[in-house]
Amino acid sequence: MAVESPGQFLLGKVDEVARWAQSSSVWPLTMGLACCAIEMMTATAPEYDLARFGSEVFRASPRQADLMIVSGRVAQKMAPIIKRLYDQMADPKWVISMGACASSGGVFDNYAVVQGVDTIVPVDVYMPGCPPTPDGLLYAVNLIQQQIRQGGRGGILARA
């Protein structure tokens, strides 16, 4: 990128370092709803091991989490709670909608399921699958890390 002054170069570097630090320690919120939650747990298990990508711990408190992985179908009763949890998370925060149900309602096109969690919270990465495999979740977390490092959100990179 074009640099006009040494000061800007330094700030740019600090920015880069900050983004690198953020992307290397994305701590998810334990937002496990249904079947996808089990695959999310499996992603932390030995075979797939999410921790090596920096997601060492899942935080139960939204105040301490960076990433909300909405894993599972969102019922009508649960929708306001997801919004509330998202609001409670501190900036900067990212959202992965894991699975077909969270992305678009999935197999359940009926009265009870919210047709996509993006009607409630902004989503950065959509993951199709029913449930997606844990390595798919690893890829989604990698995409989030790319987004963090590039400083943007959404766009064509958001298709997992």
Partner: peptide, 9 residues
């Protein structure tokens, strides 16, 4: 909180 309407589906 996870009512999915499976029976209706």
């Amino acid at each position: 909180y996870l009512h999915t309407g499976i029976e209706k589906s």
